[in-house]
Design a binder for these strands. Structure first.
Lengths: 253, 253
DNA sequence: CAGTGGTCTAGACCACTAT
DNA sequence: TAGTGGTCTAGACCACTGA
């Protein structure tokens, strides 16, 4: 009854209750950046819990970037890092759905081709190696938003299902039709102007600024097994990044 | 002598040795996605260490996204996630330095202004509130790369140092000249065409595709205390994102 | 039911920090 | 030297899984 902070009989783990308690202290400003937390021993004694449990709670706070520890000195409230920017580009389909729109992928073309010099160079393979080539356009409520062109090595020569081609995850396709297992990926985001071909597919005027993203997929031996490019309409797409401690509040403002 | 995996007398923590051991097993493919790790009890018994130490190692693997645990079942090797894209835009100065170039920030203009309607709207303040307005251009080896325009509430009315204005961190400036402490930040990345003004400052032709990034800084009460926009030359700037388990290898390829 | 990971304890020794 | 966080132990009980 003395301490409402930690309820040992709760179903909620003690370390989590403690984590939430300090999180609230910091978010509300009762603990300011630079302030020291009580020592681990103090916290353990105050709430009559083991020091290992206290450490678990502090470990969660550290992961969340809210505190940092200094050996021999103590644990201190961190300053929010507001200037390292992380832009997230998650599954396009889910993002569209999340906005209450209806996503759809349409297959424009799919062919088995023999690699020309340019493609052979890109995929790090010999000229004339058999590759799978296809193009899709992604729409939201019927309006084109993104245009993808993809290539992958076609070593297995297994039948191709349309459902695989419109799968937004290139790595899954590469896994199905190449001998290698996707292990790593490199994506590069650039700006560009829509070419005439791109403009037509996307239903915009040629020259519109667009996001241009290339993706290269590698296997465990760092060999390239797939390559693709995606054009996102610049007038409809933006990347948003939130940082700090009261992110949920500003998302709604 | 039997087990080279864990050296209890090493300076390196046991949990870290164990983490590195499993990391190597997974990266090399000896442990494949979906494979189960030995149970915690087994590992503890095999290397004669405490189960809590084993759990610390597994916790590190989980943080790294290399394994996942299932209550009552076991610990399994995860599939690398190759399709959630994270683009990082860190400190511009450091990035330029890292490429062996010489970064420089030049102050183009700095004034105390009274907010007009548009700015008042953006900062969520009353018209005619005193604000600090300034523009800077960032160059690498003398070549313009980015062009920043920033506004912050000027409530303290403390003297302004040029060193503060060319500080790439807007949050630091906001902290110095506003009553509030920066707590959160929102950044939006879009594509655009360089306006005539921007093109002149950046030394490019008008209409060049550019990255357009806006940043809004909030205090703990979710009140806006600063706003800025940055134009990055599209012909010189790109965002690169790596994912997977052998990222270090492909960075060099 | 036996086996798994999740939580927690009450100690211990260490390296580091500041005085 | 006293106090801090970092590591580690050898137990314990729990909820969940699958046979």
């Amino acid at each position: 009854m003395k301490d409402e902070i930690v309820d040992k009989n709760s179903i909620i783990p003690i370390y989590y209750q403690l984590f939430k308690y300090f999180e609230k202290q910091i978010r509300s400003g009762r603990l300011q950046p630079g302030d020291a937390l009580p020592t681990e021993m103090e916290i353990a004694a105050r709430y009559d819990i083991s020091r290992m449990t206290v450490r678990r709670a502090i470990s969660e706070l550290t992961s969340a970037g809210m505190v940092y520890t200094q050996k021999g000195k103590g644990t201190f409230v961190a300053r929010p890092r507001l200037d390292s920017v992380v832009f997230n580009l998650n599954n396009f389909f889910d993002e569209i759905k999340q906005k209450g729109m209806n996503p759809h992928a349409e297959l424009l073309e799919a062919r088995i081709i023999k690699a020309d010099e340019k493609l052979a160079e890109r995929l790090g393979i010999d000229v004339n190696t058999r590759c799978l080539y296809f193009r899709i356009v992604i729409t939201a409520d019927g309006e084109p938003l993104a245009y993808e062109t993809k290539y992958t090595i076609y070593s297995k020569q297994t039948p191709i299902l349309e459902s695989q081609l419109i799968d937004p995850l290139l790595s899954r396709l590469a896994a199905a039709h190449s001998d290698s297992i996707p292990s790593s990926s490199k994506k590069v985001l650039m700006v560009s102007k829509a070419t005439e071909d791109e403009a037509e597919v996307l239903g915009v005027t040629s020259g519109l600024p667009v996001f241009f993203m290339s993706q290269t997929i590698y296997d465990a031996d760092s060999k390239i097994i797939a390559w693709g490019k995606t054009i996102y309409r610049g007038d409809r797409y933006k990347l948003i990044s939130y940082e700090g401690w009261n992110v949920e509040d500003i998302k709604n403002s």
